[in-house]
Simulated scan of single mutants.
Amino acid sequence: MKISYKTQGTCSTCIDVEVENGIVKDVRYTGGCNGNLKGISELVKGMPVDEVVRRLDGIRCGNKETSCPDQLCKALRQCALDEGR
């Protein structure tokens, strides 16, 4: 399943996520801190969605209530909902 998730409260504006059988296959951010987000994207490839959410959920960026990793968790939850899990 592939989705495009519009982020809220972050410098990145969109996350394109591909998940197959509960495993993260690809993550691509639009905007944000290019190097950091490429790094996060590479690190989570091949990981179970539940593990990514366990590790990254709730991370904040400075004084913001959210962060790009936290928004990825929201995107992955949306993907799971769309799959009917």
Rank of each mutant, 00 (worst) to 15 (best):
V27Y: 00
C11H: 04
C11D: 14
I3H: 01
V24L: 02
R28S: 07
D26I: 03
D26S: 11
I23H: 00
G31I: 06
S4E: 11
V19F: 00
N36E: 05
C11M: 14
T13H: 09
T13G: 11
R28D: 04
V19I: 10
K25L: 04
V27C: 03
G31M: 04
N21V: 00
V19L: 04
C14Q: 15
K38G: 04
G39V: 13
T7C: 06
N34K: 13
C33I: 13
S12R: 12
K38P: 01
I15Q: 07
Q8Y: 10
G32D: 07
G39F: 13
T10E: 14
Y5H: 14
K6C: 07
N34G: 10
C11Y: 08
R28M: 04
C33Y: 06
G39P: 11
K6Y: 13
I23K: 01
V27K: 03
S12D: 05
S4I: 12
G22W: 02
V17H: 04
T13N: 06
G31S: 07
Y5C: 04
C14H: 09
G35L: 07
E18M: 10
T30A: 11
G31A: 05
N21D: 11
I15M: 07
C11K: 08
E18D: 11
I15R: 05
Q8D: 10
T30V: 14
N21T: 06
G35V: 10
G39D: 12
E20M: 11
S4A: 12
T13F: 03
G32T: 10
Y5G: 01
E20K: 14
G39T: 14
D26Y: 02
E20L: 12
I3M: 02
N34T: 12
G32A: 09
L37E: 06
V17D: 01
Y29W: 07
V24C: 01
G39W: 12
D26L: 08
C14S: 14
R28K: 15
G39Q: 13
N36P: 02
T7R: 05
I3L: 05
K38L: 15
G22N: 08
I3A: 00
G31T: 07
L37M: 12
N36G: 14
